[in-house]
Amino acid sequence: MKHTLSILVQNQAGVLSRVAALFTRRGYNIESIAVGTTEDPRISRMTIVVEGDRREVEQITKNVHKLIEVLKVSDLTYDDMVARELALIKVTADSHNRSEIMQIVDIFRAKIVDVSERSVIVEVTGDEGKVDAMIRMLRPHGIKELARTGKIAMVRGSKPEPSLRHITSA
């Protein structure tokens, strides 16, 4: 089963490779990884999607937590979370099919962000299922290029991030 891990790290050189290398060394395959800063510029959030059963993921979580620069690891899989991915899809489009593509884009509440004579770039945001469905619908028209971010995620509601509070300096 796929697990979504949210990892808060100190924003320091090399921390991404430490985390990524740990997954590799312990024999886990990262399906996607997304990294960016949080509301506190000293802290980054890594969102990692990894395949494994509950026990395996618990094990890797404990190992990640041992890294000195890792502040917090949460497995959001069983929480009520908002998870989003973004994809840019360059599709073959000319006068014959452009309107059909625009219809699909409308239905998915996606956007066309670039238009040229032979192609358009579609931007879609959503959970993995939605992005997959969008790609499926556009495929018959000819996908020329596809770029997908990893998933980012957040737990719903107003639960605070406890680890952010005890950080006084970094």
Binding site: V9, Q10, I68, E69, L71, I167, T168, A170
Partner: peptide
């Protein structure tokens, strides 16, 4: 020169 007396490692 300044050798700190304590460490500040929030993740450890």
């Amino acid at each position: 020169f300044d050798y700190p007396e304590t460490v500040d490692l929030p993740g450890y």
